[in-house]
Simulated assay, not measured.
Amino acid sequence: MNELVSKASVHAFYDEAIQQGRNTAENLQAATSERFNTLLGSVGVETPRTALDLGYGAGAYTIALARAGFHVTAVDQIPTDVLLRRIDGAGEWGRRIDPRECLAENYAIDEDFGVVVARDVLHYLARHDVEALLTNAVAHARGGNRHYLEVFTGITRRAADGQLRRIEGEADYSPDSFRQVIERIYDGWDFTLLWSEHAEQDGRTGRNCFEATRATVIAANNRAA
């Protein structure tokens, strides 16, 4: 039987890790990925200069977007003062960041964001919340939009004693079920769906505590506004 881990304990873990600046097994303090950098460099004048970063964590993607000229709404369940301290004194690009303390699933997408980023957060949500967020983001897109998603599928978690673990209410997508969701929601968009195997080690035992297939979605709304 799987050990059930509460969402509250997961929220508390990330709250503490981000506030203390710790780099966890999943590399919370990592720089932006080459795939994202390529997407950001390809954005044209047709893309609105507004962005949404769902689950911004340590803030690397939020900061990259702001430096690139986007006005960024940065959403996470952690206190906003962590990000505000990081960008204090940053100048003009720092003033383009609007941090919001909010669970990703509770954030109502009701405007046209030129770029939407959601990295390593959607798999924690219930499936209906994942699909509602993405559906709303697509519904409000007017043209030239870019979405960048990294979502873990086919997840296996283990405690230090080897017992299987599952997080309360998580989406639990298989690679195939997630692909079907993306094909349905991003109908009419140009998108690329990339797959890579991912594993994280328990620092105490050296054994894998997390294994998954990471899905990277790079989607472009090239329909006329």
Results as ranks from 00 to 15, higher is better:
30 A>M: 07
44 G>M: 08
90 A>E: 01
2 N>F: 09
17 A>C: 03
7 K>L: 11
107 Y>I: 01
182 I>R: 08
15 D>G: 01
123 H>K: 05
95 R>F: 01
9 S>I: 09
122 L>G: 02
104 A>I: 12
88 D>W: 01
145 N>M: 05
218 I>Y: 06
33 S>Q: 04
85 R>E: 12
7 K>W: 08
142 R>N: 07
176 D>K: 14
8 A>E: 15
207 R>H: 12
3 E>H: 13
9 S>V: 13
38 T>S: 15
199 A>P: 02
180 Q>Y: 06
142 R>Y: 00
180 Q>V: 05
156 T>M: 10
128 H>V: 14
119 R>D: 02
83 L>D: 03
6 S>Q: 07
159 A>T: 10
37 N>A: 12
67 R>S: 03
24 T>M: 14
56 Y>M: 02
55 G>V: 06
140 H>E: 04
28 L>D: 10
5 V>Q: 09
170 E>G: 08
168 E>R: 04
133 L>F: 04
77 Q>Y: 13
118 A>W: 02
81 D>I: 05
212 A>L: 09
185 I>G: 09
93 W>P: 01
152 F>M: 13
131 E>D: 12
145 N>S: 13
45 V>A: 15
172 D>S: 15
194 L>I: 11
96 R>K: 08
38 T>M: 05
151 V>M: 09
42 S>R: 13
110 D>C: 09
65 L>C: 04
159 A>L: 14
22 R>V: 05
122 L>M: 07
147 H>W: 11
222 N>T: 13
117 V>H: 13
14 Y>E: 00
157 R>H: 10
80 T>P: 13
97 I>H: 04
186 Y>H: 10
77 Q>H: 15
56 Y>S: 00
116 V>S: 02
29 Q>C: 14
73 T>Y: 02
196 S>K: 15
123 H>A: 04
158 R>K: 13
181 V>Q: 06
36 F>M: 11
97 I>S: 02
172 D>H: 08
162 G>W: 07
3 E>D: 06
66 A>W: 05
112 D>M: 08
19 Q>I: 07
87 I>D: 04
221 N>Q: 12
134 L>Y: 05
164 L>H: 08
136 N>T: 10
177 S>I: 03
129 D>M: 04
162 G>S: 07
77 Q>N: 12
83 L>F: 01
102 C>K: 11
3 E>P: 00
10 V>P: 11
34 E>K: 15
37 N>F: 03
172 D>C: 10
211 E>V: 13
28 L>V: 05
70 F>W: 08
111 E>G: 06
44 G>K: 11
129 D>T: 01
135 T>P: 04
166 R>Y: 04
38 T>F: 05
119 R>T: 11
146 R>Q: 09
62 T>M: 00
204 R>A: 15
67 R>M: 07
204 R>P: 01
141 A>G: 15
46 E>A: 14
121 V>P: 00
30 A>H: 05
153 T>E: 05
14 Y>T: 00
55 G>D: 06
163 Q>C: 04
175 P>S: 14
89 G>N: 07
155 I>V: 15
79 P>K: 03
93 W>S: 02
128 H>F: 03
32 T>W: 06
120 D>T: 03
196 S>C: 03
75 V>L: 03
120 D>S: 09
15 D>L: 02
71 H>T: 11
215 A>T: 08
1 M>S: 12
209 C>P: 00
55 G>E: 03
187 D>T: 11
51 A>P: 10
117 V>T: 14
86 R>T: 00
106 N>R: 15
59 G>M: 01
183 E>M: 07
136 N>K: 13
224 A>K: 08
161 D>C: 06
